[in-house]
Amino acid sequence: MTDPAVENVIALMRTTRMPHARAVVADVLATAKAQRWDPTEVVRVLLEAEATGRNRSMLATRRKRAGFPTGKTFEVWDGALSTLPAATTSFLRTLEWVRRRENLIACGPSGTGKTLLLEALGQQAIDQGMSVSWLSMEDLGALVRRHRIDDSVNKAITRATNVDLICIDDIGLLPVSADAAEGFYRVVEASYEKRSLAISSNIHPSGFDELMPKTIATATVDRLLHHAHLCQTSGESVRLMQAQNGKGTRPMN
């Protein structure tokens, strides 16, 4: 094919929004000409490049929208440092509980791997084509305050929960405001039997009435625990242990 012909193909791909195939089309056509490919193979290679590129872009977009705190995955998970049974971790990684719209509650002392577990599961959910949202109690309180002004809290909660898995991290670490308690209840109520919640907390859900009004806590926990897997971590803080052993930083050169 002549260069004008290649340019024409690239132009057509631009109008049909095929950026990933367009990026490789010149090389593919040159290779196809040199190796005398069948036309079907040319089409297959270009469509595969486009499909692969789109999938990569989609995953990147979902990760950005999720708002994960660090980007950690199970690649950095060390089962030897976790007090959770290996069988429990293996089951959670199947994400079958997300497909069944069940919840996960990870509770235990600070530094025992709860946040890492939730984030790694969220990252894996995105890899499997699911959508995820990462929230804190402070986020929920701000959302309620922002949308109470024009009475659009329900709409805002609906948008925030329009994903397959909602992760709410570090409940009980900081005082819970009335707005945050309301937002938490609204998210749990809106998600009940419709999508999955994964929650990390420094205290057992039975103690949530110490953080928020008893009426709200009772209604929230009732819905939260109905279809939930409760995992309790224990032991010393992994972060503190690593810091004491000199593993919290890299040596200075």
Score class of each variant (00 low, 15 high):
64 K>M: 04
243 A>S: 12
96 E>K: 06
97 W>V: 10
60 A>S: 14
170 D>H: 03
52 T>H: 10
136 S>P: 00
107 C>K: 01
27 D>A: 15
106 A>I: 13
72 K>T: 12
156 A>D: 10
37 W>H: 04
215 T>W: 00
122 G>E: 03
9 V>M: 13
98 V>H: 01
159 R>L: 14
74 F>N: 11
214 K>S: 14
206 S>Q: 11
128 Q>R: 15
151 D>G: 02
233 T>R: 02
148 R>L: 08
108 G>S: 07
110 S>N: 10
193 E>N: 08
253 N>I: 08
36 R>F: 05
175 P>Q: 09
62 R>W: 08
167 C>S: 02
14 R>A: 15
223 R>P: 13
251 P>H: 02
108 G>H: 02
58 M>W: 05
237 S>H: 07
188 V>M: 08
214 K>Q: 13
46 L>H: 06
106 A>H: 00
166 I>T: 15
102 E>L: 00
205 P>K: 01
91 F>K: 09
21 A>Y: 08
99 R>T: 12
28 V>D: 03
130 M>Y: 06
25 V>S: 11
232 Q>A: 11
181 A>C: 12
51 A>K: 05
245 N>Y: 02
15 T>S: 15
177 S>D: 07
180 A>H: 10
138 E>H: 14
202 N>E: 14
6 V>T: 13
188 V>W: 10
31 T>F: 00
70 T>D: 09
29 L>T: 09
245 N>D: 11
83 T>L: 00
231 C>G: 00
5 A>R: 10
57 S>W: 01
38 D>C: 09
32 A>W: 02
250 R>C: 07
7 E>A: 14
205 P>Q: 04
92 L>T: 06
2 T>I: 03
84 L>E: 05
217 A>C: 07
154 N>M: 01
245 N>G: 15
51 A>Q: 12
218 T>L: 08
49 A>G: 12
87 A>P: 03
85 P>A: 10
133 S>G: 05
151 D>F: 12
100 R>P: 05
162 N>E: 14
131 S>M: 07
51 A>G: 01
161 T>A: 13
8 N>L: 14
206 S>T: 08
146 R>N: 13
21 A>L: 10
93 R>I: 00
241 M>I: 06
147 H>C: 09
22 R>E: 15
150 D>Y: 05
68 F>C: 10
99 R>K: 11
66 A>I: 06
20 H>P: 03
231 C>T: 09
231 C>W: 00
186 R>N: 14
49 A>C: 10
4 P>A: 08
84 L>I: 08
131 S>G: 04
199 I>H: 00
98 V>F: 04
220 T>Y: 06
21 A>P: 01
143 L>T: 05
132 V>E: 08
190 A>G: 03
172 G>R: 09
157 I>W: 05
114 K>R: 10
36 R>V: 12
195 R>V: 12
81 L>C: 02
13 M>N: 08
105 I>Y: 07
54 R>S: 04
95 L>P: 09
168 I>Q: 04
91 F>W: 13
209 D>T: 05
42 V>G: 10
208 F>D: 14
177 S>N: 03
61 T>Y: 03
57 S>V: 04
68 F>P: 11
138 E>N: 06
130 M>C: 01
241 M>A: 15
72 K>R: 15
70 T>L: 11
82 S>P: 09
62 R>S: 03
206 S>R: 11
